[in-house]
Design a protein around this nucleic acid. Structure first.
Lengths: 118, 118
DNA sequence: TTATTTGCAAAAACTTTGCTGATAA
DNA sequence: TTATCAGCAAAGTTTTTGCAAATAA
């Protein structure tokens, strides 16, 4: 938990594992996944699904959006508020019991623009 | 391509494989993945990342949103328009070169509400 | 013939699970 | 002591890849 709070990088399980091993060299990846599951079931951390196939985690459980660089894969918080209004709007249009939404912006980050990476 | 156009269910690679085997019994999953990659690189189909770990595909390449049932996993198009304005708004706030966004609603579908599945 | 695509099987990437021993209550 | 959690390794799921044979240009 301390590790996730400390990292502001939206780490994957593997990232957290690497970080954890610095202080607990014998910890296993299975333990990381199990604790990540427990923490997110308890609502203490949140899971982020990015289009790159791996789950990411963060300590910020407040609803907010992310922005993902399609070149380097970096994920950051988007500087824009969660639109609760959108959920209300959809409630009137769909027969679903709407519980929320996730919005993920994609684009090219300043670093990759500067390095004109392809 | 015909298969994806015909199915309106946002199928996964596995779903498309099952469907393809009905007419081409010897087709392999590797071929499905390769063609799915080619088609989406060419922009003829689009990829949808849902939080359940597998990619889904659809023939509709027009920007739109999805709604995902957290009980049965079903994915449908959300009856709400893409908000181009949101991209413009973020362009003024972030140093990213914004290319678009994906919004995925989550909730419980009518069928699962009716069957009060847990 | 030359280039492209396929089937097949193996491997890769990410995540989950079973089991035994360690730790905590 | 009894319940919970960890390490380890095996297995599960989804996706990618190497290669020789088949097909298309």
């Amino acid at each position: 938990m301390q590790i996730i709070s400390r990292l502001h990088t939206h780490p994957s399980a593997e990232d957290i594992y690497e970080e954890a091993r610095k202080t607990m060299p014998n910890i296993s990846l299975g333990t990381i996944y199990r604790n990540l599951d427990n923490l997110s079931d308890d609502g203490v951390i949140s899971r982020i699904a990015v289009d790159d196939g791996k789950m990411r985690f963060e300590a910020n459980t407040k609803k907010h959006y992310h922005i993902n660089c399609i070149k380097c894969g970096k994920v950051e918080d988007a500087p824009i508020d969660y639109n609760h209004n959108l959920d209300s709007k959809l409630k009137g249009l769909a027969d679903y019991r709407i519980m929320g939404h996730n919005t993920e912006f994609f684009g090219i980050c300043p670093d990759c623009i500067k390095n004109h990476k392809l």
